[in-house]
Nucleic acid binder design. Structure first.
Lengths: 217, 217, 217, 217
DNA sequence: TATGAATGAGCCTTCATTCAT
DNA sequence: TATGAATGAAGGCTCATTCAT
């Protein structure tokens, strides 16, 4: 139980405030087209101050990603504590993830940005990067644990490798959410024009499909 | 069957050549960090000429996306002609899609870029956008057709709405490929460090999971 | 005898024009406080154009230094061709150098900047740096040659090492000019307030002192 | 003999401490790339406090220059008290100056900065500027005195104007030291690559040259 | 049609200085 | 007196796009 000094708490509060402002700006401009100037303006601080709290634009973006993955993990962690069959845990996690994304679409974008940075290798290793990576690893662990539980209690086929299955589930989930966003945001997305689905139905269908695919008969 | 004049054919050939050059540049610099200067240089034409064939950078990117989706559709279309149970068609389409992405990762990035543009609403409607949208719609139609065939021949559960299921399948497939890319490109991606999968195994596992989820027992 | 295409000549002319503009700006703002914006404005070109001709601020500064040392060397080279005793050659070179600086004070500042850059090691080796270094080396060679001539014809003591003496002469000359500038530019420089010397007298005195120091009796 | 209050003494002590810190920072970062932040940190005081003791960065730099010239003058003053022929005094002063610079290169940079400021006329007259000027004037006076002594005792030619000669000597000395620094710091300085001199030899050679130039035969 | 020189808005970042506590 | 968080002007540089030839 760490005790932070008043200074530290204030500093943390300001970081939170700045991240909020950044998210707000990005909601309008999109992730990449948000400028430090505008973020500072919305946060009602000077541009220099912004750099006092985040040493670069990338650094700020990563902080957003870190916050998002932390929040998500808290929810996933709670699911794992429930006394339920593995298959049900997995389904609950699926709902948790998909709903989190639905309610926090900007974090989803941030996650993608984080992966983008890793892909490009643009960043020297830094504490914040490491934190993000650890969160991602942790989330994956939650999934794999649930799968293992399910394989033990017989609710999930054990013909799959749990880790590989974990990756598949996670990847597939992200992909479905991505798709869902297109429907919501892109007015011109003709593919989806005819389909009168709602997000909830899509999510339910997806979870059901996956669940039924891995369930033991 | 429209007949193109020599002029038009030459123009089309040049467009193709430029797209080839752009893809080549992007393979090295990544999608976003490629500049019009370098593309023109690699294409061995003047920068001004580049703008004669593509009125903006976005326009060029969309053309890449258009070509990618066209190529993909050709393959998907052929699958649909096979005399096979619906569930097998779907699985074949899955392999087709995933292998296409694996072999043409740049197109995958281009697809994502296309969706990104739609999401941001940055683009006024244009012929090229429309074409991309039509391709996407067409691909979706192929999937839905296969699903309908499967539901009719009894190889696929008919508890799902075919269109919704189509979206799910497509979205999930994209997500899995995205995940697979991370493993390949990002050395530091800790989540995946422990998992010793190979791409082929991931793809097979994914298709199997989905197939088994939608199969009629 | 190299033949430059029209393009090349025009490009070179523009580089010259930009350097002229840069020198003009520096005359007012001092070397370090000149901005690329202002230089572009004075040169009556866009800022982007400036970067078309000089890839960085440092690069532009080095070009100035290069031009200065080239011009100086031309004059020094001519002196060496004269049929005169070594001691006279050295004295003439001294006058040449000191007058060059007097008439082109900005180049003097540029030389200092060049040395500053080398000192800081800020620059990766580049063609322009190399050219500057070669010019400096060449100038030094002129001096050493003159000293060697003087030692052979008996007009200069041969108790000194010519190279070391060359460095001393050059260094001392630069220092005297530096001093002279203070007198001219700094109104508040009290040290010099009482001394009613003029530049010419200072230069003459210095050359005489040095000459008499190295002359064979 | 003025008596300072405890307050004043403490204040002075802190100024000294800050200057020490500044010199320490500059030894690492170079003169121009040292920031007030880092100086405050090394001095272990708040940045605000720094501005309590020095009203601007320039002001701090000038204080360094002031200290340097004061220290140098103390040494020069002692030389002048020796009972020796004028030419020997001058030579001793030369060694004193050159060794001082060699051992305190940062002060040398500070002197140059001071002159730079005067040249640019950036500074409104201030007590600290005046002090620096007085130090400079004092140093010059020491040199001129020694020259006058030498002219009277016959050890130095009296064909020169002592003040002008003083300027020449001082300027030449500074220039030689400047040159010597280049050799030490700039690895790529091609001019000097071939010359295997050491600093001591250069200094000795220079003093000998000057001495022999002004000596009465 | 083909060119590439020219453009300038826009970006990220630095740092001396101020001021409320 | 001491602090350090906040500031914002200023600077160097990039790159998609235009236009005269």
């Amino acid at each position: 139980m760490e005790k932070l000094s008043r200074k530290d708490r204030e500093r943390e509060a300001k970081r939170v405030m700045i991240i909020d402002a950044a998210l707000q700006v990005m909601k309008v401009n999109g992730f990449e087209h948000s400028t430090m100037d505008e973020i500072a303006e919305v946060a009602e601080i000077g541009k220099g101050t912004l750099y006092l709290y985040f040493k670069s634009k990338t650094s700020l973006y990563l902080a957003i990603s870190e916050r998002g993955s932390r929040l998500l993990n808290e929810q996933l962690g709670k699911v794992l504590l429930l006394e339920l069959p593995g298959i049900t845990l997995i389904e609950k996690m699926g709902f948790t993830y998909l709903n989190f994304i639905r309610e926090n679409p900007l974090y989803f974008t941030a996650f993608n940005y984080f992966e983008h940075i890793l892909n490009e290798g643009q960043m020297t290793n830094s504490p914040i990067i490491e934190q993000c990576e650890n969160h991602a690893k942790e989330a994956m662990t939650y999934i794999v644990r649930a799968l293992q539980i399910g394989m033990q209690d017989g609710s999930i086929k054990n013909s799959y490798d749990p880790k590989e299955l974990g990756i598949i589930i996670w990847g597939a989930s992200k992909g479905v959410m991505h798709m869902a966003f297109l429907k919501n945001h892109a007015n011109h997305m003709k593919i989806l024009d005819d389909v009168e689905f709602d997000l909830q139905s899509l999510i339910t269908g997806f979870i059901e499909l996956l669940g039924s695919g891995m369930k033991n008969d």
